[in-house]
C-alpha cells in the first residue's frame, strides 16, 4: 500500500534537514574546508544580505524572465515544428537525423556567434538557449505523435471524429507523456545554457552572481546563487507537471 502524502512530505523534509544539519556540523568541525563548502547557516546570512541590497531579487528576476521567455517561445516553436514534421512525414524523415546529430553536438559553443549577431546582451543569451533547448522538443514531439497507439486512432476513426477532435482529444493526450519528456529535457538545456552564458558573458542574472562570487572567493554568495537556480528549476518542473495533467484531462 502506498504511503500517505503527509508521511512522504515529512520523510522528504527530514532527509533534507538531516543533510543540512550534517553539512553544518562537518563544516563547523572543519572536516570540510569552509572555502570549498559554506555552512548552511552562513547561506542564510548571505541570502539575507543579498535580499536587503535587492541584488538577489533583481538577478533572479533577470534569469527567471530569460528562462520564461526562452521557454515560452522555444517551447511553442518546438511543439509547432515537431507537429509539422510529424504531419509532413517526408520532411520529418529527412530532417530528424540531422536534428539528432545537432542535438548530440555541443551547440552551446556557438555562443560567440550569437554575441556577434545580437551583441553582448540578454537577447544573445536567450537566442543561444533557445537553439540548444528547442531540438529535443522538436524531436520528441514528432516521435510522440508517430508512436500514438494505432488502435486509439482507429477508435477515433470509428467515431467519425473531426481532424480537430482527433488531434485534441486523442493524439495530443496520447502523445502528452512523451511530449512532456521532450519539454522537460528542453527546459533543462535552456536553463543550463542561460546560466552558463550568464556566467561566461557577465551581463546579469544568477549565473553572473555565481561567477562574481567565485572570483571574489565568496563561497556563501556562490551557494545562494546555486540554490536559487535550483529553486527556479523546481518552479518550472512543478509548472510542467501540472500542465501535463491539464493537457491529459482536456
Amino acid at each position: 500500500m502506498p504511503l500517505p502524502q503527509w508521511i512522504i512530505v515529512g520523510l522528504r523534509s527530514l532527509v533534507i534537514l538531516g543533510a543540512l544539519f550534517a553539512l553544518e556540523l562537518m563544516v563547523r568541525l572543519e572536516w570540510i574546508n569552509p572555502l570549498f563548502l559554506a555552512r548552511p547557516t552562513s547561506w542564510v546570512g548571505a541570502f539575507r544580505a543579498l535580499m536587503a541590497e535587492g541584488e538577489l531579487p533583481k538577478l533572479a528576476w533577470i534569469t527567471l524572465s530569460e528562462i520564461g521567455l526562452t521557454f515560452l517561445v522555444g517551447g511553442a516553436a518546438g511543439l509547432l515544428l515537431g507537429t509539422l514534421l510529424y504531419r509532413f512525414r517526408r520532411v520529418g524523415e529527412a530532417s530528424s537525423s540531422l536534428l539528432g546529430a545537432m542535438f548530440a553536438s555541443p551547440i552551446v559553443l556557438l555562443y560567440p556567434i550569437f554575441l556577434v549577431i545580437f551583441g553582448r546582451n540578454r537577447m544573445a543569451i536567450m537566442a543561444q538557449a533557445m537553439v540548444t533547448g528547442i531540438i529535443p522538443i522538436i524531436l520528441q514531439t514528432r516521435n510522440s505523435f508517430l508512436h500514438v497507439n494505432e488502435t486509439l486512432i482507429d477508435v477515433g476513426r470509428v467515431l467519425n471524429l473531426t481532424r480537430r477532435q482527433m488531434f485534441f482529444h486523442i493524439m495530443l493526450p496520447a502523445a502528452a507523456p512523451m511530449i512532456f519528456t521532450g519539454i522537460r529535457l528542453g527546459l533543462i538545456y535552456m536553463l543550463l545554457s542561460i546560466i552558463a552564458i550568464e556566467y561566461i558573458v557577465g551581463v546579469g542574472g544568477l549565473g553572473n552572481l555565481v561567477s562574481d562570487a567565485y572570483f571574489r572567493l565568496n563561497t556563501d554568495e556562490l551557494y545562494v546563487g546555486v540554490i536559487t537556480v535550483g529553486l527556479l528549476s523546481l518552479i518550472f518542473y512543478t509548472f510542467l507537471t501540472r500542465a501535463q495533467r491539464w493537457v491529459q484531462r482536456m
Binding site: N149, T151, V155, V158, N160, P173, Q248, R249
Partner: peptide, 19 residues
C-alpha cells in the same frame, strides 16, 4: 466508404484511453 454511424467497434488490443 468510411466509418458508418450505425457501426460500433471493439478491438483486441486495449483501446481504453489511459488518461
Amino acid at each position: 466508404t468510411g466509418p458508418h454511424p450505425h457501426i460500433g467497434m471493439v478491438f483486441q488490443e486495449d483501446s481504453t484511453f489511459p488518461w
